[in-house]
């Protein structure tokens, strides 16, 4: 079986230590996670967590079932095969001089990204999109010397009105 990226969405109780339990499970079972993003959900007291796990489908199913065994984890779905919206947000601080600033701004425009901070020697760019878009922009900005990058990791929801 081939290793692919799987997107798992979990509803987890918003209690102290829950993230530790989840991280501990990934470590202990030697599951390979690429990103993990967590924040409030529409249910009070529950957070929604998006995890990108790399593995074959049997391994990922094992991850899903082990996660579901955690008492504080309410539900886990592998939505990889479903129609889904995925987004990631990145902040990129790039070196910018008088001579490069306008070129950077043009690239940022093309990606429909925003400049959120301007300093004498740098620009900070905010970009939202799927990982490919973020990676492409980052690749182009590398030519101008990227100083710092902060990425949220993937968040995802299935498309349509169902939940």
């Amino acid at each position: 079986m081939t290793n692919t990226k799987h997107t798992l969405i979990a509803l987890v109780e918003d209690k102290p230590g829950v993230l530790n339990r989840i991280a501990s499970l990934f470590r202990r079972r030697a599951f390979n996670i690429q990103s993990l993003a967590v924040g409030s959900s529409e249910h009070p007291g529950l957070s929604r967590m998006t995890t990108v796990v790399v593995g074959d489908s049997a391994q990922v199913e094992q991850v899903r079932k082990q996660l579901e065994k955690l008492i504080n984890v309410v539900k886990v779905s592998d939505i990889t095969e479903e129609n889904m919206v995925t987004r990631e947000l990145a902040l990129i601080k790039v070196k910018a001089s008088a001579s490069t600033r306008s070129e950077i701004m043009q690239i940022v425009d093309i990606f429909r990204a925003n400049i959120v901070d301007v300093a004498p020697g740098s620009l900070t760019v905010e970009v939202t999109g799927d990982e490919d878009k973020v990676n492409s922009l980052l690749g182009l900005l590398r030519d101008f010397d990227v100083k710092e990058v902060s990425r949220t990791g993937r968040i995802a929801l299935t498309r349509g009105s169902g939940s």
Partner: peptide, 11 residues
Amino acid sequence: IDPAEIGKNIP
């Protein structure tokens, strides 16, 4: 009784 045991070590 534990669904996570299914397929863990043996298909």
